[in-house]
Write a protein that binds this DNA or RNA. Structure first.
Ligand SMILES: Nc1ncnc2c1ncn2[C@@H]1O[C@H](COP(=O)(O)OP(=O)(O)O)[C@@H](O)[C@H]1O
Length: 439
DNA sequence: CCTCCACCGGAACGGGGGGAAA
DNA sequence: TTTCCCCCCGTTCCGGTGGAGG
């Protein structure tokens, strides 16, 4: 652990216990540059994507509606940052060059706002002032009917001087889970609501959607009307290669770290490591941040490759323990069952195997067991979280079922984390009984 | 080629919680 | 207060289904 003596220009030898943290030097100059909300002034290596999107959005400059676009590619390939960057550019140029035209540039993350209502509400938060929220003119976070929120949005956006761009980040998971109702209702904002030419002073809004997704297979789930209007324009974000990442990282590092706190060898290590697994700039930047934090904690003045390796381990470990800890009790029981089976020598298990053990475990801990139907859903959820690997497979006459295995290397570790749960702490001495035969 | 296993996964439903509105 | 609305979590029901063995 840390040394007991104060060091480095500290004048009071015995004082507050936090003193040593306070006075310690730091490798950081501006840590905020390494957070995900930071948008750099120039984006390198995304020229072709930026051009494509700008081209699609260009009608907005004349106050005309533009097509919807779908940005897709692996995580950390710059989709979000590009969308935000273009928003800034659009706003600036409209302010300087086109007096009459105003733009709403609205960002909604569909992982956070993951319901139909949540997405509409997320849009609305960009459109109302504080007073309007306080006086109840703006939609509340919950309580109104969807229709009412929809009408309110339509009214807000229907201004002939105004164009609107809505960014829907992480929309693939959302659509897969919740269907395309929300997307459809956003597109309906563009429709005039008086079909018989009644006297509406309002013009229909001009709303363009920028969708962001990792995986575009969700497009097939869309209703054909939605699909044709939504997925005509697709822009692919390719993974970064080592050189790209080096550029991006050193651009950040220059701003984030003190002179001499980081050198090229470290940046090259991060760049090449990430380039090998998916060209993820977010992860690479995060590694830099964690490395810096570790360096500060252990009192190093600069980041070396050893520290980077520590950062890689820390990031992995924290992710796993955190996601296990955050699991609901039922999922913890299921995961424990998988771990127990694995420990008993059944690495690849069927749904039946897991459910059997799960029921026994529930009997022991006093949790009331869920139906098998529900359990398979929870297993699939843990599969997408990367805690478990589950894919359906057919064993011919032996049936068709998920084949499930723990996705984590260290079984004992998993069990230890799980045993912190209040239910599972009462499972001392539980033994799996029953063998299945499965090849 | 057909059967039949052991599930898969969609659909419909509802209790219950949280909130606004009449 | 009651009524309406949205959403989470879970149940029940049930029509599929890939492929080894007949
Ligand atoms: N070309 C780039 N130049 C500078 N920073 C980038 C670039 N591409 C990505 N980043 C940074 O990498 C991180 C992840 O990018 P992000 O746009 O969130 O990826 P995605 O949305 O594709 O998952 C962000 O912090 C972003 O600022």
């Amino acid at each position: 652990m840390a040394s007991r003596t104060c060091q480095g220009g500290v004048t009071t030898p015995e004082s507050n216990i936090f003193e040593k943290y306070l006075n310690r030097g730091t490798v950081f100059q501006d840590k905020s540059v390494l957070t995900s909300s930071y948008v750099p002034p120039i984006l390198k290596h995304r020229d072709s994507q930026i051009n494509d999107i700008a081209n699609i959005l260009s009608p907005l400059l004349n106050g005309e509606g533009a097509s919807n676009v779908l940005l897709w590619g692996n995580t950390g390939t710059g989709k979000t940052v590009t969308a935000k960057y273009l928003g800034n550019q659009l706003k600036t140029i409209l302010e300087c060059e086109r007096e009459g035209i105003l733009i709403n540039y609205i960002y909604v993350n569909c992982q956070t706002a993951d319901t139909h209502y949540g997405v509409l509400y997320g849009i609305s938060t960009h459109l109302y002032s504080k007073e309007e929220v306080d006086t109840g003119i703006a939609p509340p976070p919950t309580g109104w009917s969807l229709d009412r929120v929809h009408q309110a949005l339509k009214k807000r956006l229907g201004d002939s001087k105004r164009v609107t761009v809505i960014i829907l980040d992480e929309m693939d998971m959302f659509i897969t889970k919740s269907g395309d109702d929300a997307l459809y209702s956003i597109m309906k904002l563009n429709e005039s609501d008086s079909p018989h030419g009644g006297k509406d002073i309002q013009s229909p809004p001009r709303v363009s959607i920028i969708g962001i997704a990792n995986d575009i297979s969700f497009v097939d789930l869309l209703d054909s009307r939605v699909k044709s209007r939504f997925s005509n324009e697709k822009v692919h974000f390719t993974p970064y290669i080592t050189d790209n990442l080096q550029d991006i990282l050193s651009q950040r590092a220059k701003l984030a770290f003190r002179e001499g706190a980081i050198d090229d060898s470290v940046i090259n290590l991060c760049a090449s490591t990430e380039a090998r697994v998916g060209g993820d700039a977010r992860k690479a930047i995060e590694i830099l941040r964690i490395s810096g934090e570790i360096a500060d904690r252990i009192g190093e003045k600069s980041i070396n490759t050893d520290i980077v390796k520590k950062a890689y381990n820390a990031i992995e470990r924290d992710y796993v323990t955190e996601s296990i800890r955050a699991l609901p009790a039922q999922s913890k029981h299921i995961l424990m069952s998988v771990a127990l089976n694995a420990e008993a020598g059944i690495e690849r298990q069927t749904t039946g195997d897991v459910y059997e053990t799960y029921q026994q475990l529930c009997r022991k801990t006093g949790l009331s067991p869920l139906s098998q139907r529900r359990v398979t859903d929870l297993i699939s959820e843990m599969d997408t979280q990367g805690l478990v690997n589950a894919r359906v497979r057919s064993f011919g006459r032996g049936g068709r079922t998920k084949e499930i295995a723990l996705a984590l290397p260290n079984i004992t570790n998993v069990k230890n984390v799980l045993e912190c749960d209040e239910f599972l702490s009462s499972m001392n001495g539980f033994k799996v009984k029953h063998q299945t035969t499965l090849v």
